[in-house]
């Protein structure tokens, strides 16, 4: 499978969780630690399983996610 890369700008992320909800592979979660604004940002914990579908980036209201595929 092609290698996918998901970059989450954790300073832009407000931890709304919409990406976690929408990910079909269920490989996004909310971090234990918070960013400089006090939000708990999202993070990808199993990038190997990512198909670069882009849904997370599509539903992110803060344009905090970029998605690439090799």
């Amino acid at each position: 499978m092609a290698k996918a890369k998901v970059i989450i700008n954790q300073e832009f992320c407000k931890g709304c969780g919409l990406c976690v909800n929408i990910c079909p592979k269920k490989i996004l979660t909310i971090e234990d630690d918070f960013n400089s604004k006090g939000y708990y940002p999202a993070t990808i914990f199993d990038e190997e399983k990512c198909t670069a579908c882009g849904f997370c980036a599509q539903v992110c209201p803060d344009v905090a996610i970029s998605v690439y595929r090799e």
Binding site: G54, P61, D62, S66
Partner: peptide, 19 residues
């Protein structure tokens, strides 16, 4: 690139509420 911020959208955090 599957998804990236559009050029015309300035690279700064939105002031809107989460969600």
């Amino acid at each position: 690139t599957i998804f990236e911020r559009p050029k015309t959208l300035i690279d700064k955090p939105f002031t809107y509420c989460p969600g």
